[in-house]
Design a protein around this nucleic acid. Structure first.
Lengths: 226, 226
DNA sequence: ACATATTTTTAGACAAGTCTAAAAATATTT
DNA sequence: AAATATTTTTAGACTTGTCTAAAAATATGT
């Protein structure tokens, strides 16, 4: 069992941001990248990173970038778990739209109580994914990896179930919702225009629709194999 | 509609504390009283009270004490509303015991989202009271006053329904729960010892029990009139 | 390899909120 | 009404987290 200190709102946000960057690529994580995720300045990141390093939450070498320690990663994943469970609560129980849950969950994820989050998990029926299709880490910190692929990777004649999104912005999510492109829908790729790359899909074997390449590059599907 | 600034965690706590003191008595609210509720020092209270005064949340005259403005009172009541709704959620939906909900609700009450709190209210079925029997302010800020009386005020032969508590400490609440003295139970006063003031009550027409004067002075009941 | 551009860090300042210790005001006692 | 006790405020310092502007280090172009 790791020592259960209490980390601040800000510390948790830095750890979450660094974790996110670490998952996204194997490149060294530099100050500017963190600053852009956190919406702050590089100088502030340097200060904070030094403090986190002293607390053994990450390894930091001047001018070389940072890397989370086991402990830092555990806190980050814990915060992601809380975020995604709260998002699920807001969507499933309080009927918030999937584009409205993120900002409120950003606040809720910093409530400190292991018991609370475990009881919330149970109340929600131990959900495996949040409203955007992202996997919810277990209380042991294990994240079940998705094997979703981009809708843009499907060939003509192939089908998939909408299972997640790459772009999480409210404007994109609202756009999908308006076009009936929500989690669980079945999509069959019928045609890809050689001229403008528009993709003609059949939604749930009923409705035909044209999707822009911007859209198909941001939808994740579980490929159906007949 | 009042101007919807964002108040800090700390500001909300000060306003809540002052509101609580204002409800408890009509005496001027002095720095030390606030310090003791907030668990801080009088000097810190002076500093904060000046800032709140500049923000028009309260009226402050040096050495004379403070008084909430309309706006300050509105924020305070709003915070109480959030606190009690979250307590209700934790108890009713997540099955926390009534002595466990306070500390978590102290954190949750500072989440900023009117939409969240209104949807939570709806999800809970617009509850009128929290798990300790305290009334939940409406979204308009109106608090329905209870007409509960102390169990110690009942005469021999009179009966009441347990409807609230005066002492909110976890140790007292745990004690009540262990003795089956929870909200909704019917109590009939059968005997009051002239010697040691122990009160013999009949719980739900079944179980007889002796209650200390410390206990009967901290239970609120709705008097039953036959 | 040298000059230039970019990134990162340092230095010093600021805001919120807290503290201790001392000074000022108020309250109480005689 | 003077002396004492209590309460409240001020002054200056500290912490967390942020910022700007300048300095130092690293990366890039030719």
């Amino acid at each position: 069992m790791y020592f259960c200190f209490m980390y601040s709102f800000t510390e948790e946000n830095y750890l979450k941001a660094i974790y996110k960057l670490q998952e996204q690529s194997n490149l060294a994580i530099n100050t500017n990248a963190i600053a852009s995720v956190i919406q702050t300045k590089a100088a502030s990141v340097t200060d904070m990173v030094k403090k986190l390093s002293e607390k053994k939450l990450l390894k930091y070498e001047k001018y070389k970038g940072v890397e989370l320690t086991q402990l830092g990663k555990k806190i980050a994943i814990d915060t992601v778990r809380k975020h995604r469970l709260w998002e699920t609560f807001l969507h499933k129980k309080l009927n918030f739209a999937w584009d409205e849950v993120h900002d409120i969950a950003e606040q809720l994820e910093h409530i400190h109580s292991h018991e609370l989050i475990d009881k919330l998990d149970e109340f929600l029926g131990f959900p495996s994914h949040d409203p955007h299709g992202d996997p919810i880490p277990g209380r042991n910190g294990v994240i079940q990896q998705n094997n979703f692929i981009l809708l843009s990777e499907l060939m003509i004649g192939e089908a998939g179930i909408i299972s997640g999104v790459v772009n999480h912005s409210a404007i994109f999510l609202k756009h999908l919702e308006k076009n009936d492109l929500v989690l669980g829908k079945k999509l069959l790729v019928q045609e890809i225009s050689a001229f403008d790359q528009l993709v003609k899909v059949l939604i749930d074997d009923k409705l035909q629709q044209q999707l822009s390449s911007e859209v198909v590059r941001n939808i994740l599907v579980k490929k159906l194999t007949e």
